[in-house]
Amino acid sequence: MSVVKTFNKYRNLLVELVKKDIKLKYRNSYLGVIWTMLEPLLTMVVLTLVFSKLLGKGTQDFPVYILTGRLVYSFFSNGTKAALRAVRANASMIKKVYVPKYMYPFASVLSGYVIFLISLVVLAIVAVVRGVYPTLQLFWMIVPLLQILLITTGVGMLLATMAVFFRDVEYLWGVALMLIMYTSAIFYQVESVISEKNAWIFKLNPLYAVIENFRNAVFGQPMNFQAMGYATVFGVVSLLIGVFVFYKKQDKFILYL
């Protein structure tokens, strides 16, 4: 059966898996899906308090700055972590029913993406409250939004494959995520912290490239096309590698689960 035909047959499963992830995440909590918006809002309040009140930095629109960075980073972080666990978490099903295996990590990433998109509502509200009004530049937002999905899916597939064979990938990835977080300029301005000659660290981090243009779209600034090109290339390449490695190794999964 061709790939497209198989995908069509199991499209319903993908929808069901995404629904399941979201439903179960908020089951038994009073506020339910509202947490998707409340949680980033509360983190933003904490970070704003710490960095603007205690450290005396930041301006009127600093909360918007923090929120843009944090939303993108936390989707990437949660999405890759969930994908990493997806194959192992569904081991009992993989052993008994034939289903295209990429459905599991892909569904984990997609459910995180849906939550991410819902939480953009918070960003819109905070932006207006803080006096950051939409401009025509906002339409550019679609580019970083697609890039981060590509990158997360690609990296997630690669991690999911590796995690089947080596359990310590999960811990190593936790450390890597920390490094990525601190070089993504989520709660500080790059210029204020890093000297000119260390700026290459940020140029290398694809997540920073995505966040930078996401911010440019929100704040009505011109796009950084160099960063946009880098993030696109990184996204496409990581997706190709992730999918390739996953397909090469997927028949062996069952022997290691």
Binding site: N12, E16, L17, K20, L24, R27, S92, K95, K96
Partner: peptide
């Protein structure tokens, strides 16, 4: 084997069916 333990029977019909 394909059931999710946290899901109700009704929800599992759609999941397992899928």
């Amino acid at each position: 084997a394909g059931f999710d333990p946290q899901y109700t029977g009704a929800e599992n019909i759609y999941l397992y069916g899928a």
